[in-house]
Structure formats: C-alpha cells, structure tokens
C-alpha cells in the first residue's frame, strides 16, 4: 500500500464482517482506483451498506484488511478527506438547511467564507436556494435527500461514499444527480455508490455485484453483461446468482 503513485482509493483483502453468527461481508476483495465512479450493486442484505460503513470507519472489521486512501479504514487522518451520505436523511430536523450545512462545514474546519461559497454552489445544484432558511422538518422527503447529499459534499472530499443516494428521488433529479457524479469524476473525485437500481449501473465506470456479502462479479457493466451471456445487467445478476446457488 506504500506506492502512492498507483495507490487505489479503496482496497480490501479477505474482508469479513460478522454480526453474531450472521456473516454480512464474506471474504470481500475490492480494488477501486482513484477517480472511478464505482457502483456497488446488489439486493437488500447483500452487504453493501456494511461494506461502506467499514470503509468509513463506522464498523470494526471481523477479519481481513481494508484500506482507504492508503490508510487503514477508520484511521483519523482519512475522515477529513472522505464524504459520507448515509441511507437515512441524517439531518437535524429542527435546524434550517443553512444551519445543517454550516454545522457540517464547521465540523470539517471550513472557514465561514468557504462554507458560504460552497453552500451557495451546492444549493444551486440541488435547486433548493429558496429553501435555505427553511427548517428541514418543513421539507419533503426528496428535498431532504438533496440536502443530505449537499452536506456530504460541502467540504469537497476526495472520496465520496453515497449509500443509496437516489432512493426516493424523482427521475428528473436522479438524472441530474448522475450528471453531477460524472462531473465530480471528471474533477478526480472518487465516488462509491450503493444502489439496488440495476439501470443506474450504466452511469458507473465500474460495478461490483454483491450477493450475501460476496462479490460475485466485477467490471464495467458491459463486461459483466457479456461475460454472463445476458441481455441486461439485471439478467446477468440473476444468472450469476443462480450459478452461485448451484451445488
């Protein structure tokens, strides 16, 4: 991991995470290069969120290793360099949009001027400029989702973990989210997204299909579809899943 030139954004070796007798992540080996938009695809319970939480330092590893930006997952020096958008809205409902963004800016040590500038840019992007001073409790679910995304990007992280960012978001906004993620990729930001919408995989430069905590396929969407001999990524997933079930 010491080679900084070819250092991957994320790397895991034989990663295991168990909750009691349940294995949520089962011998996961990942290598996600810097600047990629990596889609972690799989049904509910496939270990996507657990993997993201391990990489963000929110869960301890049962066995194996995980490295983020060249450091062990959970190392304090990584936190300022990553952004995390959890599945839940994860905002303070009694605070305004501005107060929420200001709080996360302050936590990341940003100056008042930087917070104001980034906040203005992001509010424009999520189209919520008019709602800047509205308490979160007065916003719709979709609006809250947008604010949550903005809070995770405020400090311009090098690596962005987005856990189901497009759930509950209308199709038009979903499309603009993906445009923005593409813009982030062009700026060199690594984006790791979990989703169970197979059609979103085409926006990713690389995807990993997860099932029962295991990586069952990895590559570009086209590569996976082709290697499975399927017509779509969804068919490829079902085909690969069936193969895994056979004795």
């Amino acid at each position: 991991m010491a080679n900084l030139q070819n250092q991957p954004a994320v790397e895991t070796h034989h990663l295991f995470k168990k909750f009691g007798s349940f294995t949520a992540v089962d011998n996961l080996n990942l290598r996600i290069e810097c600047g990629e938009t990596y889609g972690m695809l799989g049904p509910n319970g496939s270990g996507k969120t657990t993997t993201i939480k391990i990489l963000c330092g929110l869960l301890k590893i049962t066995d194996g290793e995980a490295f983020v930006l060249g450091k062990k997952a959970g190392a304090p020096s990584i936190a300022p360099r990553i952004g995390y958008m959890p599945q839940e809205t994860a905002l303070y409902l009694d605070l305004t949009v501005h107060d929420n963004m200001r709080l996360f800016g302050e936590i990341y040590g940003m100056s008042k001027v930087d917070i104001e500038r980034e906040e203005a840019n992001l509010l424009q992007f999520i189209n919520l400029e008019k709602w800047r001073n509205a308490p979160i409790s007065t916003l719709s679910g979709g609006m809250r989702h947008r604010v949550s995304l903005a809070c995770s990007m405020l400090h311009n992280p090098e690596l962005l973990f987005l856990d189901e960012p497009t759930v509950g978001v209308d199709p038009e906004l979903r499309a603009s989210f993906w445009d923005y993620f593409e813009a982030l990729r062009k700026r060199g930001v690594t984006v790791i997204i979990t989703t169970h919408y197979m059609d979103e995989a085409h926006h990713c430069s690389k995807v990993g299909l997860l099932r029962e905590g295991q990586l069952i396929a990895e590559g570009t969407p086209e590569e996976i579809t082709k290697s499975a001999g399927a017509r779509s990524l969804e068919d490829a997933f079902l085909s690969l899943a069936r193969r895994g079930e056979q004795p």
């Binding site: 963000c56 936190a79 995390y84 959890p86 990341y108 995770s152 973990f161």
Partner: peptide, 14 residues
C-alpha cells in the same frame, strides 16, 4: 435514529 450520529462519526468529529 435519524442517522446524524453516524454522519458525525464518519466526519473528523471525535
């Protein structure tokens, strides 16, 4: 329950 604690703990906040 809202997930804010998790967001804080993923940040540099100790």
């Amino acid at each position: 329950t809202s997930g804010t604690l998790e967001r804080l703990r993923a940040s540099p906040m100790k």
